[in-house]
Design a protein around this nucleic acid. Sequence first.
DNA 1: AATCTCATTAGGCGGGGATT
DNA 2: AATCCCCGCCTAATGAGATT
Length: 307
Amino acid sequence: MSLNRTCNSSFWTKEEDKAFENALAVFSGHSDKFLKIAAAVPGKSLQEIIDHYNVLVEDVNDIESGKVPLPKYERMQSSSSCRSRSSGAGVERRKGLPWTAEEHRSFLQGLAKHGKGDWRGISRNFVFSRTPTQVASHAQKYYSRLNDNNAKRRKSIHDVTSVGAANITEPSQGQKSDELTGPCGGQSQWPIADYVTEAFDTGMLSLPGSVTNCMTDAIEGPSAVNPEKFPLVAALGSELNSSFPGVDEFLQSVEDLIIVPAEGTSGVCHGVDTRTSPSLSVQPSVTGGTGMYTHPVSLYWQRAPLE
DNA sequence: AATCTCATTAGGCGGGGATT
DNA sequence: AATCCCCGCCTAATGAGATT
């Protein structure tokens, strides 16, 4: 189990874990978030931060794929990331606490996947920290907000109406918009985007809620993990289910699509299969029992060298 | 038919920003 | 500083559908 691995290699105290979680919440949208988180967590190296983050992502993947029961986070007494899992336990809900942007993005993803009305599904699969009733209540205000044309209203979390909107519409840290849209021009002209959409529709690519949120943030620029490459689009940071028939053909098709840049453009698009790219620190996760094997695959657009 | 489960809706309440 | 008003969360009531 990944949590045990973390505890063996690097013990995290309650204070360190809390500092990590707080820093992750603050800096998740930053291109250099790992550096900033490392700075905010005394005594932890950059690599330890990245490892801790990846273990967290991996665990969420396992939980979302149903391989492990939902952990019962004991808010006041948890001493480290070495949390014990009790069978059949539920997630402690964030009663009375304001919705975070992260939760709202998960809500929007759940809304896109399950549709309006399936609050239980959204709660179970996307916004783990909220009950179906809380999700429904949040949705009520969300739709009310959408239908409210009052120009004098204050800014609200409900103003975020798409998962990646904040990142996509407001490139940060001096990043130019053309760097985000890639060598093929705008997103609408990007054949890979349609191809990946189809992959989602057929179930080949999964959209694992909060994991995708973390990956989405990386669209702002190169990360400490991958300083040379930009994620192609937000959704491409998601897991690829290698047990799905035709996954290798999919990867090959991606390569076929993107190795030929559009005319008059520069830069190279390519897929990175982490089965063969150990440089990516996100490692495959293997669980027994069902025989299902999943591994993360990230697809990146690599900028051409500046001339 | 009775009961149970769940989604929806309306309204109350507290917090906090905006205004005076 | 006081007040107003908006925002966001929660709870209770209600209704619809499923189950016994």
